[in-house]
Nucleic acid binder design. Structure first.
Lengths: 342, 342
DNA sequence: CTGAAAGCGCTAACAA
DNA sequence: TTGTTAGCGCTTTCAG
């Protein structure tokens, strides 16, 4: 009498047979349904252990219509794919998401949406049921992706307020508050000739920082702040600083919209023989790695990116569980990290 | 006569009905089976467009036993979760993987395995059929994860040779070759008092770089190279450089096992009034962001991480398609990136 | 509290 | 070439 070879990947059927119960009961035990006789429970658990059973998630998803996975979509302009993963910002967002989601036993799938077709595919990805919802991180303001998800009625949460008005949940930072923190620090140090290096005009966050900074300086009696624009790179920070030094040679305080530009400013200041922070105080934004690597180390405004990412994940999970709830948002406060430059 | 409301998410059944064909034919068209009458083809495609049909991937996976997704597993020591995503190395690996996989229409799922239970869960993740295979990136040498995957008979490919001997496919860098490149550059510049800052002794790559460097220097008549150990951080690079300056004050060439330590060395050298590259030549390894941000900018050894990541992905896809093929490996050559420091 | 049976949406023999 | 049919492995009414 030859027995059939044991199935290489046991099914619920196998577990049920080994445990001597029905498939339904086995399923109940495995899914933790409370109304099951402890004895059957034990039998099933033993059978699970013995067989090394792992529920087939495709079969499960097919009936529950849930996958237990979510997409982390990085939406950028064409060809931005390359550098995205080199950016520590995305690293921190990713880290925060991964860290929070794992407590729920779920792992994010990385979807790059750096072209219009890729954006459509990202939507289809969750439409096909490969994920229950999406976490959206945009690199540019006029991103159409949030709109696509809303239109498709798919659960999604944004990191940062949508550039285009869209009824969608999001988390964001109170950028103006951060900028005000910087302004107050500069004023408190006694700076009377303050300038700022702003980010690109089409990035909402950059705008908020500039506006917030100007307003705060105005409150402290310095309504006219010279501004130079950069694009968040160190080189652009160097260029902007050079420009500012020409426009306002007596400057004694600089607020840059991010650390990289602040680092560039530091370098130019040194080349011009201006000591930091003695002659010129410098404040950055983001509290990224360069802030700590520069000399003097940068005083900067930190955003709780990991917390924001965790909250974003939480909101998405909530929305998946309660699809009819209206969108909502959470705004986080930044804080000042005092170091040597101001 | 009331028609039933149109299904919010159309199924293959709906498409078939709209097209006036059988479900099987619809399926064939959608999966590109060649032996289908072009007329039916057209009808089905029209129906797909009209209904906005998207194949349900759970249903599909259930029968094909393939998910069309792969796991990118980051295996580290307990609690290394945090900083992993801040490390540009992982960013580049991730970028390379994502970029290659997307050409196949597949997106990697990020799985963090920073504890023994997390490692087991990572294995279960693909055992449950949530992914067809795994890309493994380890942060430490004695990682048990590769062994777990091999034992489970699951497709997996490693980035970097396994620390523990394991019959598994992997890609790696010819670290010795890179170190030799650095040695030759230093020798060619006329350095006669060369020292090196090595990485941790338990990291195979660090060992290979040290060994390769020593051997190459020996070939060029400098068999005794003073070595100080660091742990790949800038601080440890500073400490090591300080130490070396004491041990061998007349040194005129430094090879550091990574850029961060080289940047630290640069800083200490400047503090000691040694000009780089005039008095001391410095070479780093990795060609990471700090290499370009330091002043002078670092001459360094670059690894084709993205290419390696792409190849790793390719190998995994191959292994998934041909499960019985034996493991194999591909070793990539680094190249020297000449900048200002040497 | 447990089991029998239906069916999630799809692909793949097999027949026609 | 096309249609019919039988599951893939699981959850979930519905009876008992």
């Amino acid at each position: 009498m030859t027995q059939p070879a044991p199935n290489p990947t046991p099914t619920l059927e196998d577990v049920a047979r080994v445990a001597g119960v029905s498939r339904a009961t086995a399923s109940r035990v495995i899914n933790g349904v409370p109304t099951v006789d402890p004895k059957m429970c034990a039998k099933v658990n033993a059978a699970v252990k013995k067989t090394g059973y792992q529920p087939n998630s495709a079969a499960r998803s097919l009936v529950t219509r849930k996958t237990g996975s979510i997409a982390l979509v990085i939406s950028g302009s064409d060809g931005s794919a390359e550098q995205v993963f080199g950016d520590p910002f995305f690293g921190r967002v990713t880290g925060g998401v991964v860290k929070h989601l794992r407590t729920e036993g779920i792992h994010p799938t990385l979807v790059l949406a750096d072209s219009d077709t890729a954006r459509l595919e990202a939507v289809d990805y969750v439409r096909r049921g490969k994920a229950d919802g999406a976490l959206l991180v945009s690199t540019h303001a006029d991103d159409t992706l949030p709109g696509l998800f809303v239109a498709a009625g798919l659960p999604a949460v944004l990191f940062a307020r949508p550039g285009l008005p869209t009824p969608i949940s999001f988390v964001d930072l109170a950028h103006e508050v951060g900028a005000a923190l910087a302004a107050e620090r500069l004023v408190a140090r006694g700076c009377r000739q303050v300038v700022t290096i702003a980010g690109p005009a089409d990035v909402p966050a950059a705008q908020d920082r500039l506006t917030g900074f100007r307003q705060a300086m105005a409150r402290h009696g310095q309504p006219f702040v010279t501004v130079a624009y950069g694009n968040f790179t160190m080189e652009s920070g160097e260029a902007a600083m050079t420009e500012l030094l020409t426009a306002q040679p007596a400057l004694d305080g600089v607020f840059a919209a991010n650390d990289l530009m602040a680092a560039g400013a530091l370098r130019v200041l040194r080349e011009h023989g201006r000591s930091v922070p003695e002659e010129v105080a410098v404040i950055g934004f983001d509290d990224s790695a360069p802030a700590n690597a520069s000399r003097p180390r940068l005083t900067t405004i930190a955003q709780p990116i990991e917390d924001m990412a965790a909250e974003m994940s939480r909101m998405l999970l909530h929305q998946i569980a309660n699809p009819t709830d209206p969108p909502n948002c959470t705004i986080f406060d930044p804080h000042l990290v005092p170091r040597e430059s101001a």
